Simulated assay, not measured.
Amino acid sequence: MASMNSTIIAPLAGTADVRPIHPLWMRITHWLNALAVVILTMSGWRIYDASPFFPFTIPPAITLGGWLGGALQWHFAAMWLLVFNGLLYLALNIFSGRLRRKFLPLSFKGVVHDLIEALQGRLSHANPRQYNHVQKLAYLFVVLDLIVIVLSGLVLWKSVQFPLLRQLMGGYEFARRIHFVGMAAMLAFVAVHLVMVALVPRTLLTMISGRAPKTL
Rank of each mutant, 00 (worst) to 15 (best):
A2C: 05
A2E: 12
S6D: 15
I8M: 12
I9M: 13
A10G: 00
L12Y: 03
L12Q: 14
R19C: 04
I21M: 05
I21K: 11
H22A: 12
H22N: 09
W25E: 00
W25R: 01
M26D: 00
M26V: 13
R27G: 00
R27W: 04
T29L: 06
W31P: 01
L32D: 01
A34L: 09
V37L: 09
M42H: 12
S43K: 00
W45L: 00
W45M: 12
R46I: 07
R46E: 13
I47Q: 01
I47N: 10
Y48I: 03
Y48P: 04
A50K: 01
F53R: 11
F53C: 05
F53K: 01
P60N: 10
T63L: 12
W67V: 05
W67E: 11
G69Y: 03
Q73I: 11
W74E: 06
H75K: 02
H75F: 04
A78W: 12
L82G: 02
F84Q: 08
F84C: 15
G86F: 10
G86Y: 06
L88Y: 14
L90I: 09
L90V: 10
A91D: 04
L92A: 15
F95W: 13
L99I: 08
R101F: 08
R101K: 11
F103V: 01
F103I: 04
F103S: 02
L104C: 11
L106R: 04
S107P: 03
F108A: 12
F108I: 14
V111T: 07
V112L: 08
H113S: 10
L115V: 05
I116S: 08
I116T: 14
E117L: 15
A118C: 02
L119Y: 05
G121N: 04
R122C: 06
R122L: 04
H125P: 05
H125A: 15
H125V: 11
N127L: 02
P128E: 06
Q130H: 10
Y131A: 08
Y131H: 14
N132I: 01
N132F: 03
N132H: 03
V134M: 11
Q135P: 08
L137P: 08
A138R: 00
A138M: 06
Y139W: 09
Y139C: 04
L144E: 06
L144W: 10
V148F: 11
V150C: 09
L151H: 06
L154D: 10
L154E: 11
K158G: 06
V160W: 09
Q161N: 15
Q161P: 04
L164F: 13
L164T: 13
Q167L: 03
Q167S: 13
G171Y: 03
G171H: 03
G171F: 02
E173H: 09
E173S: 02
F174V: 07
R176Q: 15
R177L: 08
R177D: 06
G182R: 06
A184Y: 05
A184S: 14
A185E: 08
L187I: 14
A188H: 00
A188G: 11
V190R: 03
A191V: 14
A191C: 05
A191I: 15
L194F: 05
V195R: 11
V195D: 09
M196Q: 01
T203D: 14
L204D: 04
L205M: 02
T206S: 15
T206Y: 11
I208R: 04
I208C: 00
P213E: 03
P213K: 09
P213W: 07
K214Q: 13
T215F: 12
L216K: 13
